[in-house]
Design a protein around this nucleic acid. Sequence first.
RNA 1: GCCUGGGUGGCGGAACUGGUAGACGCAAGGGACUUAAAAUCCCUCGACCGCAAGGUUGUACGAGUUCGAUUCUCGUCCCAGGCACCA
Length: 831
Amino acid sequence: MSAPKNTKYDFAAIEAKWRSHWLTEKTFKAVPDPNRPKYYLLEMFPYPSGRIHMGHVRNYTIGDVVARYKRMKGFNVIHPMGWDAFGLPAENAAIKHQTHPAKWTYENIEYMKKQLQRMGFSYDWDRELATCNDSYYRWEQLFFVKLFEKGLVYQRVTTVNWCEGCQTVLANEQVIDGLCWRCDRQVQPRKMNGWFFKITDYAEELLAGCDQLPGWPEKVLTMQRNWIGKSVGVEVEFPVEGLDRKLAIFTTRPDTIHGVTFMSLAPEHPWLAELAAGTGQEAEVAEFAERIIAAKKSQQPGEMEKEGVFTGRYCTNPFTGERVPIHVANFVLMDYGTGAVMAVPAHDQRDFEFAQKYNIPIKVVIQPAGRELLGPTLTEAYVEPGLLTASGAFSGLESEAAKAAIVAHAEQHGLGHGRINYRLHDWGISRQRYWGTPIPMIHCEKCGIRPVPEADLPVVLPKEVTLDPTGKSPLHAMASFYQVDCPTCGGLARRETDTMDTFVESSWYFARYCCPDLTTAPLDREAANYWLPVDQYIGGVEHAILHLLYARFFTKLLRDLGYLTIDEPFTNLLTQGMVIKDGAKMSKSKGNVVDPNDLIERYGADTVRLFSLFAAPPEKELEWSDQGVDGASRFLFRIYRFITNNLDAINAAATSVNPETLNDPGRALHRKVHQTIRKVGSDIETRFHFNTAISALMELTNLLFSLAGEEAKETIAPAVVREAVEAVLLLLSPMTPHLCEELWQATGHATPLGLHPWPGFDEKAATEDEIVVVIQVNGKVRGRLQTTPGAAAEPLQEQALADPHVRKFIEGKTVRKVIMVPDKLINIVVA
RNA sequence: GCCUGGGUGGCGGAACUGGUAGACGCAAGGGACUUAAAAUCCCUCGACCGCAAGGUUGUACGAGUUCGAUUCUCGUCCCAGGCACCA
């Protein structure tokens, strides 16, 4: 193998060779081995949308480097890949192209799998799974039935988020700014029957767990904490005048309860008509509520002006006995707390604005230190803590103490009780579409809702269907599917025709990878105990709430069903940044999309991998640059050329270096080799900064080429050159595995690099024997001294003071002190 | 409005724990090789002053702490992401 000076290497041939080698040899097959430490590396699996995009390339390249690195470090690495294969795009594409979602999906999987293999990712393909396969989703149905029996799954009618475009319901997490997360259409409230997972039962544990995840980015944890939205407060009941009813409100500010001057109810509050009845306000209240509810359907939520109407009825403040008028207000939410709010205009900005608009009294009950507030002169609500005033027996207490005292009082006198509220709602998982996991439930008129008996599972999604162009699920009208016998009474019953949210599949796939082919149970205890939890999870931040919260929740569910023993699925999380081009996210509409296929074709997979690692640290955005790719490609060509042009010398060289016998350039290269091994290892290990690891390797090769290339002035020991070449190949191999394997083989190695141990470094060899110490005068660099590490301070200091250039800056001034930082600098302070 | 991040050359980005700011790469300019181009190789490259040695200045802006600040503290401005009538 020898190459003319300037040729490029045949990356297509080299990559094809190693690609098929890895596949046929099953180099990356993961087998449990109790004697070796395991390492579970996982990247978020893709939706098989057709072809991979640059985001996948980046995500999976980062993961692959870590997987390969950990393997070389001696870990038993599991690195699986699969397909998040249920979902709407398949159904929509099938409708559009007159095909079947399964056909579309499996064809995409086949194509994308080839693409991933072309990138050289070190997956154990024997563990591949697709969630649309009944061998996968059948277990999900089993979980569903078991959870139903435990009361963690239930059905109810509620107002849901309906997307007309997708013809289905969305979870709260899937509604972004009032728009559908997938098609950007305005979401509408609609009353519907649906299935829910009781995630709120786990709210507290999910929240507390955030403190047990030091390997997660703080940003993601903050987002999850906010989403769960815990607030501690009290529920108090206000008796309604003239009706045998008590109006319940939730508040986190019981300390302000003596300042209540009105009540506000949500427009959806079920008591409105009853409250207004007989007061003369009936028509106005009904009309107002209707108008506001209608407005919510078409308008994006946002800050709107506070508005309301008096219901004509009063209730009584149980603490003061005061009469409190009840209003309907547009800013009160029905689905948080009780849908009714006690209004304290002096200490809540919303209530303040409302009270001003409708001339409702403002009663100050909290006074700040050092000034006195008066209701009529307030310009905004005072929301900070302070001392209670005009609050009966509680006057004079500090707000925090007053909260506790007032809650205690309420509980003692039966006026209310302490309560914790969460912003998090139960997870609605019913989807009215076809391409998903059938919900294994049966509706019987006589027996009610019955789960499909375990022996009858799975409920297979029927393949022979004709899709309706509107998106309406064919299951709803498919008698052969929905007509079943009731498992309890045997009478005619109706099978549930909704399917599950696809986030259910992605909530436990990481566990199924431990035993993807097991047919007798969803999970193999032993395998799961060995491999789980995932040591490192890598994916986009866009899943910070949705997928990552659901997966944490499901892990706890499966633990409580006895399938898993872990509490948290992912020990460490890396959220990689987006790939952008010309400052914007790649998108068809902007026309700035880069197709990985074209790049692989033109530069080879190794170059594409190298550039995506080099251009930015993983958590930051990556600005794609065509010229940058050229640079990465040049670097690999230079390595190839150097090694092939010097192959005979390298192969003839001794395999160990004797530092004693080296000349200066030889020692310099030897030192650089060991410094580079140290730096690349720590850059990958401690912070995934592949960009600096690569730049260190570039420095090493630059030195190697200048000292041992054709322009070199002095010849250096071939053993050092060999050492340098081997270090470059080993250190670079997780990033550009094909080329490195090829050159590794060419330099006479029989075992593949992928299974070779990561090189160690010699601290002594890495130590500089000459260093430069900077001389500063008043913090400004005025000179430099060459010395050896650990040189004595005194003579150095003298040398510094004697330096002719330095003298110019000291002359005529007194030296106040001299600061010495060993092996770094000398700062002479003069005045 | 609130909560996170972040602001360093023409560009992507380096700088460990407060110690030589700008590693590495890209672009640009100059040169070598070539009939020519591509490729490759060599040199220069924050700004200002200077023939040079060298000096001044410079990490969004303004203060502060320190012998010394991109790094720590306070204030201001700007950008990105998340949440947003949650009582």
